[in-house]
Amino acid sequence: MQFTSFLENGKLTIALNGEIDHHCAKQYIQSIAAKIEAYTPDICILDFQEVSFVDSSGIAVVINALRNMSQIEGRLMLSGISDQPMRVFRASGIDKIVEIKEAVS
């Protein structure tokens, strides 16, 4: 697991990639928490463009990031979600509690 992130005007974008399952989720949860703690952004965007698969472990990644951001009174947004992850987010109701941004070209 590795991912890139960049900070611009208080906006932290974290680009996730690959398949997010239980095998790698814990590392994602910890690394995202560490980035948010280090940069205390106003907005954090989790970019799913390069993510090909998520299961319920991915839901925990999003919920933990949401918790990290609300602790510093910031916003969390998700972007670039493809079909399979979107079906999982819908089935679990995540799409109702986190802002989802349409992919910008």
Partner: peptide, 22 residues
């Protein structure tokens, strides 16, 4: 039941809900 888990903060309790709906 949705959100029931014995697994703590890195589990969401949505596994069976997803299996049932898919």
């Amino acid at each position: 039941r949705p959100m029931f888990t014995t697994g703590g903060a890195d589990r969401s309790g949505m596994g069976f809900t997803i299996m049932e709906s898919f």
